[in-house]
Design a protein around this nucleic acid. Sequence first.
RNA 1: AGGCACGUAGCUCAGGGGGAGAGCACUACCUUGACACGGUAGGGGUCGUUGGUUCAAAUCCAAUCGUGCCUACCA
Length: 705
Amino acid sequence: MSTDLLDKGYEPQEVEQRWYAFWEKEGLFRAEAESDRKSFSIVIPPPNVTGVLHMGHALNNVLQDILCRYRRNRGDNVLWMPGTDHAGIATQNVVERQLAAEGTDRHDLGREQFIERVWRWREESGGAIINQLKRLGASCDWERERFTMDEGLSRAVRKVFVQLYEEGLIFRGDYIINWCPRCDTALADLEVEHEEVDAHLYHILYPFTAGEGGITVATTRPETMLGDTAVAVNPDDERYHNLPSEQVRLPLTDREIPIIRDSYVDTSFGTGGLKVTPAHDPNDFEISRRHSLPAVKAIGDDGRMTEEAGTYAGMDRFECRKAVLKDLEEQGLLQKIDPLKHSVGHCYRCGVVVEPNLSRQWFVKAKPLADKAMAAVREGETRIIPDMWERTYFDWLENIRDWCISRQIWWGHQIPAWTCEDCGELIVAMEDPQKCPKCSSTELVQETDVLDTWFSSALWPFSTMGWPDETPLLKTFYPTSALVTAFDILFFWVARMMMMGIHFMKDVPFRDVYIHALVRDEQGQKMSKSKGNVIDPLLIIDNYGTDAFRFTLAAFAAQGRDVKMSEKRVEGYRHFINKLWNAARFSLMHLDRPCPDIPSEGLSLPDRWILSRLYRVMRTVEEGIDTYRFNEAAGALYQFVWHEFCDWYLEAIKPTLHGKTDESARNATLSVLWRVLRETLILLHPFIPFVTEEIWHKLPGTEGS
RNA sequence: AGGCACGUAGCUCAGGGGGAGAGCACUACCUUGACACGGUAGGGGUCGUUGGUUCAAAUCCAAUCGUGCCUACCA
């Protein structure tokens, strides 16, 4: 009997460091590119290269790690592919802020130097998130770590772009897009966050060019009137039959614009008169196409009024709004101001009010790709779990619009398109062209835009495995077994991976999509820096140990409900880790040798009972993990370890262990104890890898991992 | 405007046609050689409201109230 097998209290820090180093050294997370074993694969949702670990990452990666370790325990050939995302706008913003602090900007630096600077920043900070994932215990195959701007992945991006272009699924067009004047780039529809604000509805009179009166239009953005090219009314609106004139004078300008009829106009809204600003409103843009109206761009890409705005040129758009209202007021054309709640789009990266703007951008024709992505889920090739998200997935894909993929930033994959200066030919190619195929000119200028970050992320499941080459890795691990992610990137990422995966690999990128909840604070608020309610996972790990933290996350990861995180809870599960530690400590006082053979008869009642409970919890855990009900598995283990194994079994066998019985009964009990402890450690390992590993190696007869 | 989810013990939540549960908090007792990050015993809820289906409803259905979130081009 000895008590020095395990220290009295569990010391996570030392144990965690030691074991993680051991696992890495032994290559235990390494996947075999070719193997007879069953494959199991997951690609990590690549965190932003410049990011730091937050609670969302923690939950996301712990759940993936549980799946991977569980499969490894079962003998599967497991690939957990790690990597990071270059996060175009977000990363560029960070570096631009640094430059601003140094009193310079990217234009001073020039494109090449700026990009170098970003790469440098990536070198400095790119390792942080990876090391933090390791502290979580993440068992990724680190030797395969990828980055969305790796050479290989960039080649995949180019290949995809060129092929889609040749298939007519990528095109360039003049379109109304969302423009962020702060980030100075186009945004996809998804990248716009709508927020309800208290605003005003201004009623403005546009006088007829002949006769009395005019048409009153209503708008929330009066400054856009400077870009109006028509006034629209509903053809059935009797108020506007037999007008004295078919033209109105656009106030504050010397322009005359036509009155058009379009059924889009809602007769019940305002006065039934709609100002049409094709360059600055998506609906107006559509109307303008139907009626062949010109577009006048009154607001520039920098958020200031253009020359088209006449005397207002150069003004900030919101300054201009005030000025326009004042001038209209003076001319007696501002008839009414109503309060109005409506939603205004903001840039998801910087929060600035987005300006719809007409410009030439690149698009992916989404419909054909979306149809197949829907079919795959409908036919069960990919399961979305919990299935309530299927509906959301379908809703979005059914109403999908073309995906604007060009961004006017510098950090990202530059679009592989060139224009011939001499003949205007557009060239899209894998390799940088030397001369124009049409006129042989060497004056070729590459498109300056880069691709939306999500374009490269959409290829992640196969680009990380070496596509477009036909690699053994792809053969073994594609389609991946599961994708684990939060719902907030269901459209951004999951749906697009489905579209690209099906198109290029002819098979879905994953069999299961498990959508987990968001981690919130104690009050259920989203954690954000501005609210100051962020709980740093690393701090929690420092204070309570990784295992306690992991178990807390797993225990609260009930499907369909957000996880409210607080230190108090982690503390509770630290008690559990300690309980397990001490149960092991007690057991090891008696288990001084391997006892693998459980006698087939003569077992005591407690022995038989705990074995039956063990088998039951084994089934529950297996079922829980297989169905992504991590909380059920964790809950069952908690209950079993504490209230069955510790409270009942260990207490019940104390008399036997403490000697007063015959040797064969004692041996029988020891063999049961040995077995139960061993199996329990295996069951617990995916959840709490460090403490179980530490105990495992003290248990006689369980050398190796 | 549509959609989704959620309202169960003081708090956080699991459960899901027939015993109302867990953790934390609380009360009393226990410094018993695994563990006070512990043990034993205990208090506490008419499972949002109202109807319906059923022999039976916290559990299914409908309505209603409340909360949160997502999608959306009504200026």
